[in-house]
Amino acid sequence: MDQHFDDLLAANRTYAETFDLQGFDGIAKSGVMLVTCMDSRIEPLGMLGLQPGDAKILRNPGGRVDDRALVALVLGNNLLNVDRILIVEHTRCAVASNDEETILTRIGESAGQDAHWLPVDPIADQRRALAEDVHKVTSHPLIADSVHVGGFLYDVDSGLLERVA
């Protein structure tokens, strides 16, 4: 067996020594669900003053509300106590800073094969994309009208959120 994960497993054992979420029912205690980018500069719970168990978090390239994210949002609203949804994109995002050709060329060079078949869906205008994603959520027939939905831009250099939609 390879040892590429040994450091992470050791850290997990340390984490488990003080683990205190056993028996938790999985309901979002704060009623919050967050869709954000996979960028490692984003600390979803910390940036909102939340703790483990408070929120449901979805991460994908660019923090977009795609079809799978919509399914998760419906589940969150109807089964997991979610009544506030934040859609958070961020500054200096690779998906919003490059066009599709650039991204696919870089992937192809790294992978050593053509990647132009891969849908990467770059973001040309983050503010417009956030408005579109907020609309996708607020107009979905299985998400209650009482759910509060906001689109935000997170500044990776200051740590501040700006509401834009």
Rank of each mutant, 00 (worst) to 15 (best):
V147Y: 12
L34E: 09
H135L: 07
N98D: 03
R84M: 09
G23T: 11
I107P: 05
S158R: 01
R127D: 13
V134F: 09
L86W: 14
S139G: 06
P119I: 00
L58F: 13
L153E: 03
C93P: 07
S97N: 11
I27Q: 15
L142A: 07
V156M: 00
L104M: 05
V95R: 00
G49S: 00
N60D: 09
A124H: 08
F19T: 12
H135Y: 07
L73R: 01
R128S: 10
S139R: 11
D7F: 00
I123Q: 01
A96Q: 08
G63C: 09
A16M: 13
F19N: 13
S110W: 06
H148M: 05
T105N: 06
V65G: 06
D7Q: 11
L153F: 07
D121H: 13
L79C: 13
I42L: 14
D7N: 05
D2F: 10
A165K: 04
E162R: 09
L70C: 11
D6E: 13
G62A: 02
G151I: 11
D133N: 15
R59H: 03
P141G: 03
D121Y: 10
H116C: 07
M33F: 10
I107A: 08
L142V: 02
P61K: 03
L160C: 01
H90A: 04
V164P: 02
A69G: 05
L45N: 12
A69R: 06
P119Y: 02
V120P: 12
A124V: 02
R163Y: 02
L21C: 04
T36G: 10
A55I: 00
V134S: 01
D145K: 14
P119D: 05
E89S: 14
P141W: 03
A72N: 14
V32E: 13
Y15W: 12
V65A: 01
W117M: 06
A11E: 14
L9V: 06
L34Q: 11
V65C: 07
L104K: 15
A131R: 08
L73C: 02
I143D: 00
G76Y: 15
E109K: 13
R64L: 15
R41F: 01
V120F: 12
D20A: 14
G46M: 05
T14M: 10
G46I: 07
L118T: 10
R64Y: 07
Q51D: 14
A124C: 04
G108P: 03
L142W: 08
T138P: 07
D114A: 08
S97F: 02
I103H: 07
D157V: 03
Q3F: 09
E162N: 04
L48H: 12
H135D: 14
S146K: 11
L45V: 06
V32M: 14
S97P: 01
Y15M: 12
S158I: 00
V82N: 00
D83G: 12
N12C: 01
G151D: 11
M47H: 06
Q113P: 00
A144E: 08
D121L: 01
L161N: 12
L73H: 00
R84W: 02
E100D: 14
G150W: 01
D125Q: 02
V137H: 09
I57N: 03
Q3V: 05
L21Y: 01
L9Q: 09
L8T: 03
I27L: 13
H140C: 00
L161P: 01
